[in-house]
Computed example of a mutant assay.
Amino acid sequence: MLLLFVPIGIMANLAEQIGKMIDNEAPFAEIAMYYLNFTLVIGNLLFPIFLFLSVIFFTSKLANNTEIVAILSSGVSYSRFMRPYLIGATLIAVIMFFMSMFIVPQASIGYNGFIYKYLKKGKQDRVTTNLFNQLNENDYIYVSSFDPARQIGYNFTLEHFNEENTLDYKISAANIRWVEKDSIYRLTSYEKRSLVDDIEILETKRRLDTIFDFRIDDLTPVSYAAETKNLFELNEFIDTQRRKGASNINTYVLVKYKRWALPVAAFILTIIAVAVSSVKRRGGMGVNLAFGIGVAFIYIFFDKVFGTLAEQAGFSPLLAVIIPNVAFGIIGLYLLNNAKR
């Protein structure tokens, strides 16, 4: 199924994007690497669906040859008949786990980087206006806009609070720029207001070179940042963004839960596929495959709907992942319980 669908996906994507690649002069080596990463990212995303269709195809062949009837009528229990499927699903689930947690995040860096460099050239890959971050328990920063290409933020403000949650000082600047060759920050129209014993002290400079304990890129991570983190990096990244008060934290948490849900989906879809296709039908394999493709689309639809709710409407990311899997898990158990034995 992988060898059947992935090349079709590559050819469809290439036919759609070839014009943009030529217009933006994408090198052949980068295009080849993009489609290698494309294979890993898309293949991992659709792995449960490929497994589902594969089980339907294989089991329907057995049913059409009356082999399942022979197996069950010889005294083999249905649970024993299911055992090889569950063993296979376990192997696939382990592969999916390691791919989604460690291999695919690395591929996502090149995959998304190529998209924004050549296919969405000129479009921002992150939020760049009205950025607010909490650096730690005492420091808060704000910029009205940020230019990732020039590494510069406009209308910069840093507020430092003491342990009593009282403002100690406030730094303002027309802009803040990261000077890479000197590893410093350059503030233009610098102004610092400090409060000492209820007395306000004002310090101004036309330009100030200084050091801050943050990276300017951390002001606004790329929209696909969570997809590029492995298991351990993602947990740390989510904790950091939650501490900073990131407004799109649900997007990052949703990515985490979806990775954990992929192996579970392998078992759920395997059970549904076996229960549906283990019976010999008048329409043969075509009916089972049609049913399987319909179920796959419904599953993807529910997954997308609840994922969008979590990202845009504040719906719980955990529930957004659990609800589709629980619903299809119940369907799978019902079909399995009512399968002809």
Rank of each mutant, 00 (worst) to 15 (best):
L2Q: 03
G19V: 04
K20F: 00
M21R: 00
I22H: 05
A26E: 12
E30L: 13
Y35A: 00
V41Y: 05
L46H: 05
F57R: 07
S60V: 03
L62K: 11
N65L: 08
E67Y: 03
S79Y: 04
I87C: 04
I87L: 13
L91T: 12
V94E: 04
V94D: 02
F98V: 12
F98E: 10
P105K: 12
A107I: 11
Y111V: 07
F114N: 10
Y118D: 08
Y118I: 12
L119P: 00
K120G: 07
D125L: 05
T128Q: 04
F132C: 07
L135V: 12
E137I: 09
E137S: 13
S145C: 09
D147T: 10
G153P: 11
H160W: 06
E163Y: 10
I171V: 15
S172M: 12
K181L: 14
D182K: 13
S183C: 05
T188N: 15
Y190V: 10
E191R: 15
E191W: 07
K192N: 15
L195F: 14
L195G: 05
D198H: 11
I201M: 10
E203G: 02
L208W: 06
T210S: 11
T210G: 06
T210Q: 06
F214A: 03
D218G: 09
A226S: 11
T228G: 01
E233L: 03
E233N: 01
Q241I: 00
R243F: 15
K244N: 01
L254W: 02
Y257V: 07
Y257F: 13
A261I: 09
V264H: 00
A266Q: 03
T270G: 10
S278F: 13
R281N: 12
M285Q: 10
G286W: 02
F291Y: 14
G292P: 05
V295Y: 02
I300F: 08
V305L: 13
P317D: 03
L319M: 11
G329N: 00
I330V: 15
